[in-house]
Computed example of a mutant assay.
Amino acid sequence: MSNIIQLLERMGQDAQLQDAQQLAQEIAQAEISAEQKQALINQDTQALHDELDVCADVVCMMVPAKDDKPKDDKESETKPDSETSSLLLQA
Rank of each mutant, 00 (worst) to 15 (best):
C60D: 08
M61E: 15
K71E: 15
D44F: 03
I41E: 04
A24Y: 11
K69H: 07
S33I: 06
V58Y: 11
C55W: 02
A65V: 11
C55E: 05
L23A: 05
K37G: 04
L23H: 03
Q22C: 01
K66V: 12
E26I: 11
A28T: 08
Q46I: 05
Q36P: 06
C55M: 12
S85R: 15
V59T: 14
A47T: 04
E75S: 05
S33G: 02
E51D: 02
L52H: 00
L52G: 01
P80Y: 01
D73V: 06
A47W: 05
Q21H: 08
V63R: 04
D72R: 13
C55F: 04
V54D: 02
S33D: 08
N42W: 02
K69S: 07
K71Y: 10
K37C: 06
L40I: 12
E35Y: 05
E83T: 11
P70W: 14
A34R: 15
P80V: 02
V54G: 01
K74H: 09
I27P: 01
S33M: 08
H49I: 15
Q21G: 00
D81W: 11
P70E: 15
T45Q: 14
A65M: 08
A56Y: 11
A28W: 02
Q29W: 03
L52E: 00
K66D: 11
K71C: 04
L40H: 13
L52I: 05
A56P: 06
I27S: 13
D67G: 09
D57R: 04
K37T: 10
K66H: 07
H49R: 15
D68A: 12
E83W: 09
M62T: 09
E83S: 08
T45V: 15
M62H: 09
E31S: 07
L48S: 04
E35F: 04
H49Q: 13
Q46M: 10
K79I: 09
E75N: 04
Q29T: 09
Q46P: 12
A30D: 08
Q22S: 02
V54P: 01
D50S: 02
L52N: 00
D72F: 05
A30R: 05
Q38N: 05
K71Q: 14
Q43P: 00
M61D: 13
E77R: 15
D53F: 05
S82I: 10
